[in-house]
Structure formats: C-alpha cells, structure tokens
C-alpha cells in the first residue's frame, strides 16, 4: 500500500519535472487528457459497479461553468478556490439527482443520466448571459498571487492537473481495495446478495455517484482553467460518450486505466484529426470496435498481462 502511494507520488513528480521541458502543445494536450482522466476515474467507480453513466458531461460542464462564472462574478482568480467551488457545486447537484438515479440500472441509468446532462445543455445553449452556444472566455487563473504568463502560461493548469491526478489517483487506488470499493463489484455481480448481507445497494451507488460527480467537476474546472474557453458542448451527450470511450479504452480494472485511456484518446484524436480531418471520427469508431472485440478490459489489461507474466 505504501509502495503504491510512493509510486503514484513519484510518477506525479516526474510528470511535473517533465512539464518544465515540454513543448507548449504537449503540455496543453496532457492537461486536457489528465482532466478527462479525472472525470473517467469517477466513471470507473460507477462502471465497476456495473453502471455506465452517459451523462458525466453534466458535472464536467458544470464544474467548468462554475470556474468560469465564479471567476467573472466574484472577481477571484484563485485557482484552488475556484476548483473547490466547482467540486462543491457538483456534489450538491449530484446529491439531489443521485437520489433519483440510484434507483436505476443498466440502460435506464445510462439514458437517465444522459437526459440530465442534456437538460443542462439545453439550458446553457439558451442562456445568453453565458454566451449561449458559443460559451465564453475564462479569465487566466492565479495561484497564490502568481499569474503565469507567456511560456509558463499553460504550466499552471498542467501542474494543477498533475497534482489533482496524484491525489485522486491515490484515493481511487486505495478506494478500490476498501470495503466500499469491493462493494461496487458486489453490486455489479449480485444486488440481492448485497442486500441480504446487510448493505444498502442504493446507498453504495449513491456514494459512488457523488464521488464520480466530484471528480468530474474537478476535471471540468481544470479544463476551463487550461483551455480558457468553455461552451455548452461540454454537457452534450457526445462528450459523455467520449468519457465512456476513454474508460473502455484504458480499462476499468485499475486506477491507471483512465489516465492511460485519456492520454491515448487525446493523442489518437489529435493525430487522427491532423492526418485526415474528415475521417477522425471513423478512426475513433473503429478503435472502439477493436477494443470491444479484442481488448474488452482495455489497454491496461495489456500491461497486466506483461507484468503478471500472463500469456498474450
């Protein structure tokens, strides 16, 4: 346990150090990928319980708008404060929606969570105060009075993303080994048994839903700080579909899956878009089919096969 924590922190420090030497485009790409990785880590908690949310875009978008709006309205650019606000607001909303959602399973859970994200999308597209479908620009972030400019501009958000990733990564890693983590598998496998063991399935799902919302809000907030622009598209169902895609690509068997999935996804998308702007979606779609057919446990299962000496 200590070993794993040290490894994760070590990886974080290495990423931070590498960030100092990275070209700007890569820093930016990784920041966005890490932010998405955070969202997908939350999704991982749900997916391990057998619940696929097609609506994490709701909290991703809400977190981003919190950061953007609060930055404007309260005239604070303190990045930490803004991110904290994003998390709090997302958890508050999830606390209400979760009460309803934890009664649903399978495709109903998927569709219902999608409906909620589409409600937010519908509201934002029509709200002219926030730029309607164009969205608006987010003020550059500030950390302890330091506003990075020029070359070091993207580094602040990158640093935040890495630190958040390390924190959430350690949490998820330990969570998966805790009674609550195991309870997720248990819910996926057999709800009747869980109830007859004395645990409330709804409460388990509710907890996971809140955690997932917090992580999605954090990811969305970091995206807003990094990209400097937000729009309602973040709540559109295709964005939520991307998160599920990433989760599948990376695999939900391990806390590292979402991060690897997110980085691969961003790289794949960037390169696919550069190589053939008209068919990048097709490339993504084919990749998704290949993964479902041949790598149902995601790319991470390849790593496990190698490290655990299982045959390929």
């Amino acid at each position: 346990m200590k070993y794993a924590t040290t490894m994760i922190v070590g990886a974080g420090i290495a990423l931070l150090a590498a960030g100092l030497f990275m070209p700007g485009w890569l820093t930016f790409l990784l920041t966005l990928a890490f932010a998405k990785g955070l969202v997908v880590m939350g999704l991982l908690l749900l997916m391990r319980a057998g619940l696929v949310s097609f609506g994490q875009g709701l909290y991703y978008c809400l977190g981003a708008y919190c950061v953007g709006i609060a930055g404007d309205y309260f005239e604070t650019q303190n990045a930490l404060l803004l991110l904290l606000l994003a998390i709090v607001v997302c958890v508050a909303l999830a606390a209400v929606i979760g009460l309803l959602l934890c009664r649903y399973r399978d495709i109903f859970f998927a569709m219902f969570s999608m409906a909620f994200s589409m409600i937010l999308y519908g509201v934002l597209v029509k709200s002219s105060a926030f730029g309607s479908s164009d969205g608006f620009n987010v003020k550059p972030p500030l950390l302890f009075g330091w506003t990075p400019t020029g070359e070091s501009g993207p580094f602040l958000a990158y640093g935040l993303a890495v630190v958040a990733l390390v924190g959430v990564g350690i949490f998820v890693w330990r969570y998966l080994r805790s009674p609550m983590g195991y309870a997720g598998e248990a819910v996926r496998e057999n709800e009747i048994r869980v109830e007859y063991l004395g645990a409330s399935v709804r409460r388990i799902i509710y907890t996971k839903y809140l955690l997932a919302a917090a992580m999605a809000g954090l990811g969305g907030g970091i995206t807003a700080l990094a990209a400097g622009h937000i729009d309602p598209e973040m709540a559109y169902w295709t964005t939520s579909g991307e998160f599920v895609f990433i989760a599948l690509m990376g695999g939900v068997g391990h806390a590292a899956g979402p991060v690897i999935g997110a980085v691969l996804f961003e790289l794949l998308r960037t390169y696919a878009f550069q190589i053939s702007p008209y068919t990048w979606q097709m490339i993504l779609g084919i990749a998704l089919l290949v993964i479902i057919l041949y790598l149902p446990k995601g790319v991470w299962s390849l790593v496990e096969r190698v490290t655990k000496g299982k045959p390929l």
Partner: peptide, 12 residues
C-alpha cells in the same frame, strides 16, 4: 459489509 455500518472508503 457485516463489520461496518458505513463502509470505509480508504482502509483496505
């Protein structure tokens, strides 16, 4: 499940 009323999130 039996030992805890509220399941711990971080202890193994």
């Amino acid at each position: 499940i039996m030992k805890h009323k509220i399941l711990p999130l971080m202890s193994p």
